[in-house]
């Protein structure tokens, strides 16, 4: 197991999660959530779960992001917190 890769990607993962929750601009938050999902896919690939990895990359980083962006343009972009 490559624990050095895992450490770097886990740090990025935690940072992306915190940034996604702190951003006041919802579009920026959603883009950061896509980055988070892609990091999660990389973690899955490093840990040997390649099938989970590519499903997470396609579904988590792709379709979820598109759904969120459509919903944000249908509603509003600014958030108070």
């Amino acid at each position: 197991m490559h624990w050095e890769f895992e450490l770097v990607i886990l740090v990025f993962l935690l940072a992306a999660a915190i940034v996604a929750l702190r951003s006041k601009d919802l579009l920026a938050a959603v883009v950061t959530l896509s980055v988070y999902s892609f990091m999660a896919a990389l973690i899955c690939a490093v840990m040997g779960a390649v099938d989970v990895g590519f499903t997470e990359a396609v579904v988590g980083a792709g379709i979820t992001g598109v759904l969120f962006i459509v919903a944000i343009y249908q509603t509003e972009r600014k958030s108070v917190d």
Partner: peptide, 14 residues
């Protein structure tokens, strides 16, 4: 914000 709650839920799930 409810969208922020949903983002938190997604993080929780993954």
């Amino acid at each position: 914000n409810l969208v922020k709650k949903l983002i938190g839920l997604n993080i929780f799930q993954s």
